[in-house]
Nucleic acid binder design. Structure first.
Lengths: 259, 259
DNA sequence: TAGTGGTCTAGACCACCCC
DNA sequence: GGGTGGTCTAGACCACTAT
């Protein structure tokens, strides 16, 4: 009989149900690792149709508190140990200390971290990247593509692009592991002194493909971060194109109050 | 009869339809300002049920290319004039020039901008904000709540919180319009020299309430930005809590390669 | 095999918009 | 009033996961 009758409010039933479930999670009634009741059980409990429960669960998933798998059900996610990605991760002293920024940050947050190298080798520069590197589109550059895991789940993909004339004399950059301090340390070893890094962020919903790569619900937000590494000579010697699961990161930047 | 039979692929029909519509927009078949065909027309055109078209349109809305209004239909959005929010918006020279950062950035992007002041007055400091300001939770602070429009649509809400002992001698801060250069200029007028600003960003799906305030589709991503304004004495004299429609902004930060 | 989520249907009623 | 999107139903079939 359509919307509920008899002195009802404007807020749809499926939103009420979704809120109730989210509250139960936030209040700890449903703890991390617990299974959310199955959809058919919720149908009985709330006395609504399957379609309504279905929409409610879409809302619950959008909250990011729950992970749903097909024939299995919905499980309350382990605490999202949102990690800080602070702007001082690019300090030279960190590189000299041999710290890789990602691993250091994850350890600090008490999480296990893993990096999987997907590809290291030549690639034709995509437009957009080529613009930033100051080369022609389609020219050969070195691409380094990685997938980052935290606590066993993929949270970030990153691809670094470097101009060929910069990398051709630095064999370490072609290795899976470029050594302590990462590729920035190797570039500085070879006379490329960094002046600044410029990061551009944009948040948007994940495409289907991105969602599956990062094990997200489709439509969950991702953050697209592109970083230019600029040397003292004003040259961009690396562009890093990164896609992150938004609920796994916060970003912190310190902006000096310059004139 | 359930999913389409007879040699069909795994990709659901509603996704196919959504992709088709999105492609038509990206290809320019549907231009900004055009109306997307109504749902009942799409039902006829694709020969599927209303529920399927409904799910397809949810996907299309998630792309951010379309704006749907209730009794009216779905319109292709005017070019999302994604604006840059660069880190040099806090330069003293800009304040001395009397420029308000938001208006300047919008003009630069060729958009019309408007600010609506929702509230200026005392408020009990919310926890989280109080922590950042270095005051007790519940203590009275000055709150300044605004809603920012671009091209007529709301894109950002912002609330500034300032400790009472800082503001009590600066009457301009209680006015809707604090004068040229904004509240930061007034604070500097009264001896609060800024040393740095610290911005923290997090992207997440909008709640229902936030979605309606920013005229977004529910679940569309928002960026939650919190900024601490720190003086030379190391004191946080303002915390600005901002919620932005993610598709309306990119963020740019320049990070010096310090030691 | 039984239970789960995922897709789809066909139709109802409601609320909003505009003529 | 006639069109639009928004909610809800009751039931079907499919695909994945466990046992």
């Amino acid at each position: 009989m359509g919307t509920t009758v008899g002195g009802e409010r404007a807020v749809p039933r499926y939103v009420q149900i979704a809120d109730e479930i989210v509250q139960q999670i936030r209040a700890g009634v449903l703890k991390p690792g617990d299974m959310v009741p199955s959809e058919s059980e919720l149908v009985d409990r709330y006395g609504v149709s399957g379609g309504t429960i279905r929409k409610a669960m879409v809302e619950v998933r959008a909250s990011g508190l729950v992970e749903t798998r097909h024939g299995k059900g919905s499980m309350v996610k382990a605490r999202p140990p949102v990690r800080h990605r602070s702007s001082d991760r690019f300090r030279r002293s960190h590189r000299r200390g041999g710290k890789a920024a990602y691993l250091a940050e994850s350890e600090q947050a008490g999480a296990t971290a893993k990096v999987s190298v997907l590809y290291v080798g030549p690639m034709e520069a995509p437009t957009g990247i080529a613009d930033r590197l100051g080369v022609e589109a389609g020219v050969q550059v070195l691409a380094r593509r990685r997938l980052y895991f935290r606590n066993g789940t993929p949270v970030e993909t990153a691809t670094s692009y470097l101009p060929w004339d910069v990398v051709k004399d630095i064999p370490e950059l072609f290795a899976e592991n470029p050594g302590g301090g990462g590729i920035y340390a190797r570039l500085e070893d070879h006379g490329h002194e960094f002046a600044e890094f410029i990061e551009t962020l944009q948040a948007r919903p994940a495409s289907k493909a991105e969602a599956s790569e990062l094990a997200l619900s489709p439509g969950a937000p991702v953050v697209h971060l592109i970083r230019n590494a600029v040397t003292e000579e004003g040259r961009v010697v690396e562009v890093c194109d990164t896609l992150m699961a938004a609920d796994q990161f916060t970003f912190e930047y310190r902006i000096p109050a310059a004139d």
